[in-house]
């Protein structure tokens, strides 16, 4: 007895006439999608480089020569300067206006 199944009676299909043209069309479409991607990614890279260059140039030209060599310890915020300058210039030291924290209130109440 023949072991194999006899497929000779089974009809063999043939690809449709336009199938290969459709394959080529899909390949063309894929390629046309790849080119814009390359262009877009190139543009994005160029824009990134431009931004970095501009920021470097701006940082170079915007350096203040007066403060360039100032040590960090000398840089004090305006609020701090105002507070120091107001010391001893007022009658009240505003101790009454200090808000008591809940912890202080608790200690006071215990006494």
């Amino acid at each position: 007895m023949r072991e194999e199944i006899d497929f000779s009676s089974v009809e063999r299909l043939t690809p449709r006439a336009d199938s290969f043209n459709r394959v080529l069309a899909r390949l063309d479409k894929q390629e046309s999608n790849v080119i814009p991607f390359k262009v877009i990614s190139g543009l994005a890279l160029a824009a990134s480089v431009a931004i970095v260059c501009v920021s470097v140039i701006l940082s170079v030209f915007s350096v203040d020569t007066d403060t360039e060599n100032m040590p960090m310890g000398n840089i004090v915020s305006l609020d701090d300067v105002a507070w120091y300058s107001s010391l001893g210039n007022e009658d009240s030291c505003d101790f009454e206006e200090l808000e008591e924290s809940p912890a202080i209130s608790y200690l006071t109440a215990r006494k």
Partner: peptide
């Protein structure tokens, strides 16, 4: 090989249109 690919796909899927789709997918 397209004919062989198509017939194998058809034997597996039992659907002519889907077999054609597979054939095109394979060659793409």
């Amino acid at each position: 090989h397209s004919k062989n690919v198509l017939n194998l796909a058809f034997q597996m899927l039992k659907n002519r249109d889907e077999a054609e789709d597979i054939l095109m997918d394979v060659f793409v």
